[in-house]
C-alpha cells in the first residue's frame, strides 16, 4: 500500500500550522468582532488539521516523536512550508489575499487528497475538505468585497495582490518529491492544480475588479527548507516554551 514520505506529510502540515499561527495573531485585533471570530475559526481549523498530519508524520518517523516534537523542535531549514504562508499579516486586506491564494490552492489539493492512494492522507483530507471549502468561499467573498468596495479598499487590496503574487509560483512548481508522490498516486499533478487555481483566481479577481499582476519573477525554496527571514521569528514564538523548558509536560 502506498505511503507518503515523512517529508511530504510535513510539507502539508507546516503550511497550515504556519498559516494558522499567522491568523492567530489577529485574535483580539480584528476589524470587527464578527470577523475576529470568523478568522479565528479558520485558524482553529488549520491548526487542527496540522495536528492530524503531524501525528501521521510522527507515526511514519516511528521513533517516539509526538506532534509537538515535530512542530516545536525543528529549526528553519527543516521546516517545509511555502513562502506564501510565512508572509506577515499586513493589513486585513493582505491577510485576506494571502488566505485567498492559499485557500484556493488548498481546496484543489484537498480535493485530490480525498482520493489519495495513501489511505491515511485520504482519511485526513476527507475530514478537512469541508472546512477548506468553507475557507475558500470565505476568502473569495472578502476579496470581492474589498476589491469592489471603496476606492481605498480597492487600492489596498490590489497592492496586496501585486505583493503576494511572487509567492504563488512555488505552490505549483514540482520538485522531485512532488513528482515521486504524483507517480504513486499519493499527491496531485501540480499542473492540474495550477490550471484550476489560475482559472478560479482569474474569475474572482475579475469580479472583484482587480488586475492580475503581469508576469513576475516567482520566488521559491520554502518547501525545500530555504526560507526568508520571517520564519525564524515565527518559530521563536511558536517554540519558545519547548526551547526554554525542554522535555516538560504541559
Amino acid at each position: 500500500m502506498a505511503q507518503a514520505s515523512e517529508k511530504y506529510v510535513l510539507r502539508l502540515a507546516d503550511n497550515i500550522l504556519i498559516l494558522g499561527q499567522r491568523l492567530g495573531e489577529w485574535c483580539g485585533h480584528g476589524p470587527v468582532l464578527e470577523q475576529d471570530i470568523a478568522l479565528t475559526n479558520i485558524a482553529l481549523d488549520l491548526i487542527g488539521q496540522s495536528r492530524m498530519l503531524y501525528q501521521y508524520a510522527a507515526e511514519i518517523r516511528n521513533d517516539g516523536s509526538t506532534e509537538d516534537d515535530l512542530a516545536m523542535k525543528r529549526d528553519v531549514f527543516d521546516y517545509y512550508n511555502c513562502l506564501l504562508v510565512e508572509q506577515p499579516n499586513g493589513d486585513w486586506g493582505k491577510t485576506i489575499v494571502r488566505q485567498f491564494f492559499f485557500d484556493t490552492y488548498h481546496y484543489y489539493l484537498q480535493e485530490f487528497l480525498v482520493n489519495s492512494s495513501d489511505q491515511r492522507l485520504s482519511e485526513i483530507a476527507r475530514k478537512s475538505f469541508k472546512e477548506v471549502a468553507y475557507h475558500a468561499q470565505y476568502s473569495a467573498e472578502w476579496v470581492i468585497r474589498l476589491g469592489d468596495g471603496t476606492e481605498e479598499s480597492h487600492q489596498r487590496v490590489q497592492s496586496s495582490v501585486n505583493d503576494l503574487w511572487t509567492f504563488t509560483g512555488e505552490l505549483f512548481t514540482p520538485d522531485e518529491l512532488d513528482r515521486e508522490m504524483q507517480e504513486q498516486g499519493i499527491g496531485p499533478d501540480l499542473d492540474v492544480i495550477a490550471a484550476n487555481w489560475n482559472k478560479k483566481v482569474n474569475e474572482i479577481l475579475e469580479i472583484a475588479t482587480l488586475q492580475i499582476p503581469e508576469e513576475t519573477f516567482m520566488q521559491s525554496g520554502g518547501k525545500q527548507g530555504e526560507h526568508g527571514e520571517y520564519l525564524g521569528f515565527i518559530l521563536a514564538e511558536l517554540q519558545f516554551m519547548q526551547r526554554a523548558y525542554p522535555d516538560m509536560k504541559w
Partner: peptide, 10 residues
C-alpha cells in the same frame, strides 16, 4: 450573505 456566515461563526 455575510450575516449568514457571521451567524454560523458566532
Amino acid at each position: 450573505e455575510m450575516a449568514i456566515k457571521n451567524a454560523r461563526d458566532v
